[in-house]
Amino acid sequence: MNRIIVCVKPVPDPKHWDKVSMDPETKTLKREGIPNIMNPLDKHALEAALALRESHGGEVVLLSMAPPFAKTTIREGLAMGADRAVLLSDRVFAGSDSLATAEILAAGCRWIGGFDIVLCGNLSIDGSTAQICSQLAEMLDLPNVMHVTGMEESGEDNLIITQKIENGYVKLFSGFPVVLSVRKEVNKPRYIPFTGILAAESKEITMLSNKDLCVDPERIGLKGSPTKMAGLEVRKFERKKEKLEGTVDDIVEKLVERIYQCGVIEC
């Protein structure tokens, strides 16, 4: 095994999602003041990479496109055991949709070079588009597999991959390089050891801007994103909210009546 790149994304901690607001000018979500965590599925991707490195050697490199504050999240990945990290950070990246993000991450992968596998989480908990795996692979002109629940190396240069589909699984045989995105079932991410936290302090985080990557400015940021946010609203519910009260018998009596009124049973 040569090198494995693991894409990680800092995402706003779901515990603080009630503080989310929208920037009226850019129509993007404002995340200021909300603490970030590593996207949960990315930890599974990293665990898969670390397990492959333990059995087959190689280097695990974290790759992230995010503002400089993402260093905290990246340190967490380094503490888990990644060897080094590359953080793609530039104002011109802001507002990128999945297509533009894939373009930038692909440039990051090319900059790192010499990889056998690129691993991602199947989706992020904030945007949840689940589009990066396929789009990154397309930009790199490499095959990709999503919904991965298992992988084992077969010989020197191949992987046997288990992919979850509706009502079943597909077993796939793939050469390198390949881009994979994992589901939660693929493994259980390790706890961060105290020694890992110490070791992470001395690991290298390379910061790159678009001056280093030279991605066509027409293809990145808001300008390079074909999808535009046309509106954003907090969900509201208009339901009857009729509260059934009284003794258990009263409630059950009313419940039967309400179920009957729905027309799903005949009494």
Binding site: P12, P14, W17, D18, V20, L29, I125, D126, G127, S128, T227, K228, M229, A230, G231, L232, E233, V234, R235
Partner: peptide
């Protein structure tokens, strides 16, 4: 988006 708490309109 965001776990369904917000609804975004994309064009």
């Amino acid at each position: 988006g965001w776990g369904g708490g917000v609804v975004a309109t994309i064009a």
